[in-house]
């Protein structure tokens, strides 16, 4: 099982169900960087988006 590479940012994203689309683009830097580096959170994000669409 994968683990988040930065639990503080991961916890913030988990609270938002990994959805940063509502954040102004200029403020997303830290979160986009985290998604780029964290397999765990990318996978959770995919899961949540799948549930949303389903």
């Amino acid at each position: 099982m994968s683990q988040c590479v930065d639990q503080v940012v991961g916890d913030i994203l988990a609270g938002w169900r990994y959805d940063i689309s509502g954040i102004a683009a200029e403020m997303r830097g830290d979160y986009e960087q985290h998604f780029a580096e964290c397999v765990h959170c990318r996978s959770r994000q995919r899961l949540h988006r799948t549930i949303d669409i389903g």
Binding site: V8, V9, I12, A24, E26, M27, G29, D30, Y31
Partner: peptide, 9 residues
């Protein structure tokens, strides 16, 4: 933005 973009995290 150039004064607060990292604030939340």
């Amino acid at each position: 933005q150039d004064h607060v973009s990292g604030l939340g995290v």
